[in-house]
């Protein structure tokens, strides 16, 4: 994830709002569920070796391009 992320991919709250330490740990074992730019819930597909996620407004992210 880039430092420009506004929202936490795990809980969907603002990054500026609290530490999200647990969220960052959780994201080591699960894909993000919320778009980092708009906090919409993304459509996420987990694959055996990775994952891909789509925000209806901001497009695709994946484990290759995180």
């Amino acid at each position: 994830m880039t430092t420009l992320d506004m929202y936490c991919g795990h809980c969907g709250q603002e990054q500026a709002d609290g530490s999200h330490e647990d969220c960052r740990r959780a994201l080591m074992l699960e894909p993000p569920r919320y778009c980092a730019e708009c906090r919409r819930r993304m459509v996420v597909q987990v694959h055996p070796m990775g994952w891909s996620a789509r925000c209806s407004v901001h497009g695709d992210v994946s484990s290759d391009r995180r």
Binding site: M28, E30, V46, H47, W51
Partner: peptide, 8 residues
């Protein structure tokens, strides 16, 4: 091996 259904 690898990922699960909704978690990694």
């Amino acid at each position: 091996v690898g990922n699960y259904l909704t978690t990694l």
